[in-house]
Nucleic acid binder design. Structure first.
Length: 200
DNA sequence: GTCCTGATAGACT
DNA sequence: GTCTATCAGGACC
């Protein structure tokens, strides 16, 4: 699988964050664990643009143990715990520009059986991965992956498979950030139109 | 729609 | 040490 779907190179991540958020749509997110390898198509993302974005953890350049990885180079994993769930983000922006992209939804692409095993009790296939906390559980992504590069196993992102080369992208306000002033209205959420694995 | 769960970092005393 | 908010999810109505 790694030979068929090699990691995207450093140059892929050297884009404006809003462009990268859209470029990630259709790409495959892979995670290999002791249980096996699983992969899913990224179908929904949200951009968070550091200093000027009140909704971002790195707003006003807040530099802490948690946000530290966002001040580093792009192409690394930023993990964050929300209640009982782990959320996965791709670090974006150059060094000292703390920006990131939250992955909110994936479509199972490889080893759906393993995802189902990790997500018992779901009633429809969509419920396995149609949310930021759900997809990390389905793929087996944990806080251990914080700060890890996305350019080599066990956690990596590969180019769009040919069946996902063409689709239309929609955008709109982000989810769950109601207390962030004007920032809550920024249309920095992107998704693949008509995809069934969008979080809402 | 409402309510409850409950990990972790960060702010505060 | 203690308090509290959080880029949700699930169970319920």
């Amino acid at each position: 699988m790694i030979k068929l779907h090699p990691p995207l190179p450093t140059s892929f991540y050297e884009k404006q964050t809003l462009d990268l958020a859209q470029a990630l749509l259709g790409c495959v997110l892979w995670k290999e664990t002791e249980e096996g390898l699983a992969g899913g198509i990224i179908v929904e993302t949200e951009a968070y643009k550091g200093p000027e974005d009140r909704a971002a953890h790195s707003y006003n350049n807040r530099r802490t143990k948690r946000t530290e990885v966002m001040f580093g180079p792009s192409g690394n994993a930023y993990m964050y715990t929300m209640h009982t769930h782990n959320l996965f983000n791709v670090v974006s922006g150059p060094i000292d520009k703390p920006e990131a992209i939250l992955v909110r939804g994936i479509e199972p692409y490889y080893n759906q059986e393993l995802m189902r095993k990790r997500r018992p009790n779901v009633k429809t296939p969509y419920q396995m991965t149609n949310g930021p906390g759900k997809l990390t559980k389905a793929l087996g992504i944990t806080l251990q992956d914080y700060g890890h590069t996305l350019k080599e196993p066990p956690l990596w992102i590969s180019h769009k498979p040919k069946e996902f080369m063409s689709f239309s992208i929609k955008s709109g306000p982000r989810i769950g950030i109601d207390n962030s002033g004007a920032a809550k209205d920024y249309p920095w959420r992107f998704w693949i139109d008509n995809n069934k694995y969008i979080s809402r």
